[in-house]
């Protein structure tokens, strides 16, 4: 599904990714763990098309050169980034935003757009599944949301858009245990044979809730080791500094 080969990325002449390789097949959950500054967020930004990086190497998504696509085209193809810091958008009603988003994607795929009733039905169902208070959806997008509410809102968006590849950028940061559980349950409910996940995190904690198929250690812009869930446990014991 996703294949990254010798990916290098620079920003302001500073090399952040230094030849990263990664393959994700349909249905797989991959976790990338790494210390601050190892390039985790850069990777998620590049996969979702954020501007400002000088990028080399190849990234293909379902056989297509991903690096040629605009951010919104990647979303249309089924890539979703759950932001580490979801942005507050004043004056924009969350429901309006969600409807615009899902219909933009449906339109790009040549599918029929949802009308108001179909949309509300979908929202109701998804909010219920994720134990998400619907009232929050009539508020301005992320404005005045608590950290937990913002992250839950990201997961709700993910659930509504039903992406093929979801990238979760430190979704666990700033979450209390209860919110962490709800967010993880949300992710787990979306797991199936087709959908893949790339989970980026500092801590093993999140991986206790969302069991990954593969764990990779990112250090200094490269994946230095890959393994299964046991690798995460080992990391937690040893720490990033001494891990080689």
């Amino acid at each position: 599904m996703l294949s990254i080969e010798s990916l290098k990325a620079k920003i302001d002449d500073k090399e952040i990714l230094k030849g990263l390789n990664l393959n994700i097949n349909p249905g797989e959950v991959h976790a990338i763990m790494g210390p601050n500054g190892s390039g985790k967020s850069t990777l998620s930004n590049i996969l979702s098309g954020k501007k400002g990086y000088e990028v080399n190497g190849s990234v293909t998504f379902e056989g297509q050169n991903l690096l040629e696509l605009e951010t919104e085209e990647r979303a249309h193809k089924g890539i979703f980034l759950a932001f580490q810091y979801p942005l507050e958008i004043p004056g924009v009603n969350t429901n309006t935003f969600l409807k615009t988003s899902i219909n933009a994607i449906k339109k790009a795929r040549g599918e029929k757009e949802l009308d108001a009733i179909e949309f509300l039905k979908l929202i109701k169902q998804k909010s219920l599944e994720l134990k998400f208070d619907e009232k929050i959806l009539s508020r301005q997008l992320n404005v005045g949301f608590s950290g937990g509410e913002k992250k839950k809102n990201e997961i709700l968006q993910m659930s509504i858009l039903n992406p093929k590849l979801s990238i979760l950028d430190e979704t666990d940061s700033g979450l209390d245990i209860d919110a962490l559980r709800i967010v993880s349950e949300g992710v787990n409910s979306l797991r199936n044979k087709e959908n893949s996940f790339l989970i980026i995190t500092h801590y093993q904690r999140l991986l206790d809730y969302i069991k990954p198929d593969f764990v990779h250690v990112l250090k200094n812009g490269q994946i230095i080791k890959s393994g299964d869930y046991e690798l995460a446990k080992e990391l937690e014991k040893v720490g990033y500094e001494d891990f080689n």
Binding site: S48, R74, F80, P86, P90, A104
Partner: peptide, 22 residues
């Protein structure tokens, strides 16, 4: 970027932001 990552075009995102602002 946040709005575009949800499938909105650049123009759509800008419009949504300015409408929200007003």
């Amino acid at each position: 970027f946040y709005l575009m990552s949800r499938g909105l075009s650049y123009e759509q995102s800008k419009k949504l932001l300015t409408n929200g602002f007003l």
